[in-house]
Amino acid sequence: MIVEEQVELSEVFMAHRSQLRWAALKILGNPERAEDVVQDAYLKVSEAAAVFHVKQPVAYLFQMVRNLAIDHHRRISFELNLFEGEDDGLHVPSHIGMPEATVISRQHLKLVAKAISELPERTRRAFELHRLEGQTHRAIAAELAISTSLVNILIHEAIDHCRAALQST
């Protein structure tokens, strides 16, 4: 079963490679960076697949590429901003070096997954809707029938709990 999933993941990756690269390119505006992010996403998703049961590999891969492209772009534009004091928007000059990919260990993945599973259901739901489904505070508030300020508090609680789980190691 696990072997099948692993095979499936790399097949899914190969089958969607050009769309994944395009998704990264739209965010990064640079083909080389897009390629790097797609590679990084594949490595991270392989790590995650070794730890978790990934039910929807296509959606998961696209989500990871998007997450990593945003993270990558954010880091480049900060380096620019911090040194030049100007926001260059989405078009990052290519002379800025590649930021190092963030290394994420299997142990940290497991600890964070455990921490999330320990959250009270409403907290976990609010966090997943925000983090994994990209919903706004307002949409989450409507779905859970709570205020937007409570949504914000729950998301903070979820993150703080994950942080504590990593700090205790």
Partner: peptide, 16 residues
């Protein structure tokens, strides 16, 4: 940086 890294990790965890 710590918060961003944590954010990235939580994004890799499939829905509970």
């Amino acid at each position: 940086d710590e918060a961003s890294r944590l954010w990235l990790i939580t994004g890799l965890v499939p829905p509970f």
